[in-house]
């Protein structure tokens, strides 16, 4: 009884602190999202007095045309590949930041990792365009160094999309892994080695299992937005850059078929949630 009263008064005093965040989330996310759910079941946008009706047709469109499923699978593959590259690039960097570097040099390297966050996304992508195109920075630099002539034109290709996305999202992986790696006591590594384990065995049996929560969090933070991404595929991928996210974007900005765009979005959301729900217990058990 006393405990219940205490927790209720605790909630009341916490309310002024919680209210701004929840009010903002309600206005900025919940209401527009509800409107989108509503739109996704309409035949037309109720603008300029057009007649409209409720329909399941927008969802049926996904299943009747194989193109959407093909694009969704391509986007999921893109998400998987980008996430894997982020692990391959980000995890070693996080390890060095957490366990090898100390003091000033750690701060400096950390800053370099965070830097992409501070630059505008569009600027970032167009800088890649300048680097990757034929006669661009990479092409010119390599030809200046190499004795033979090679032609580097990565622009408007699948690798270009991967490069751009990995660059945008790798800091998430570095940050989440850094946090879990830093929490691992150095004496655990020393204990492992004193028992005869090589550095690689210690990494496999102690460090990676203990940093699994960071890897999972980083993967979730990267995989979800990459599957729905449209900016990098459009600018760096060109004609090859047609993915599920770009199709959704088309429905909103080009074709002006909001109901279909909304329906495709919610299908993506459902698929991603199912994947996360299935994957997270498996990964947690592995840890």
């Amino acid at each position: 009884m006393a405990a219940a009263t205490a927790s209720r008064s605790g909630l009341r005093s916490a309310l002024p602190l919680l209210a701004p965040a929840y009010l903002w989330l309600t206005v900025a996310i919940f209401l527009p999202l509800s409107a989108m759910v509503f739109f996704s079941f309409m035949t037309e946008l109720p603008l300029s007095g057009k007649p409209w009706a409720f329909t399941l047709g927008n969802y049926a469109a996904f299943f009747s045309q194989s193109l959407y499923l093909t694009l969704l699978l391509a986007s999921l593959r893109l998400g998987l590949e980008v996430t894997l590259w982020c692990v391959v690039i980000g995890y070693p960097a996080a390890y060095v930041l957490a366990k090898v570097l100390k003091g000033r040099s750690r701060e400096a390297i950390f800053l370099l990792v965070i830097l992409p966050f501070w630059s505008n996304g569009l600027v970032r992508i167009f800088s890649w365009a300048m680097v990757l195109r034929e006669g661009g920075i990479l092409d010119t630099a390599l030809n200046a160094v190499l004795p033979f002539k090679i032609n580097i034109d990565l622009m408007y290709s699948y690798p270009a999309v991967i490069i751009g996305l990995v660059h945008s999202y790798v800091p998430y992986m570095v940050l989440t892994c850094y946090l879990t790696l830093q929490a691992i006591d150095d004496s655990l590594i020393e204990a492992g080695r004193s028992l005869g384990a090589s550095r690689l065995q210690v990494l496999k049996r102690v460090i990676i299992p203990l940093s699994m929560p960071g890897l999972v969090a980083g993967a979730a933070l990267i995989f979800v937005p990459v599957v729905g991404s449209f900016m990098e595929p459009r600018i760096l991928g060109g004609r090859t850059g047609t993915f599920y996210g770009t199709v959704i974007e088309d429905q909103f900005v080009a074709v002006f078929n909001w109901p279909l765009g909304a329906a495709l979005s919610f299908i993506l959301l459902a698929v991603v949630l199912v994947i996360l729900a299935v994957a997270s217990p498996v990964l947690r058990r592995a840890a």
Binding site: S187, E190, S194, P209, L210
Partner: peptide
Amino acid sequence: IGMVFQNYALFPN
């Protein structure tokens, strides 16, 4: 060698 650490250093996983 065998080593025992001050904070035990047992593998929590």
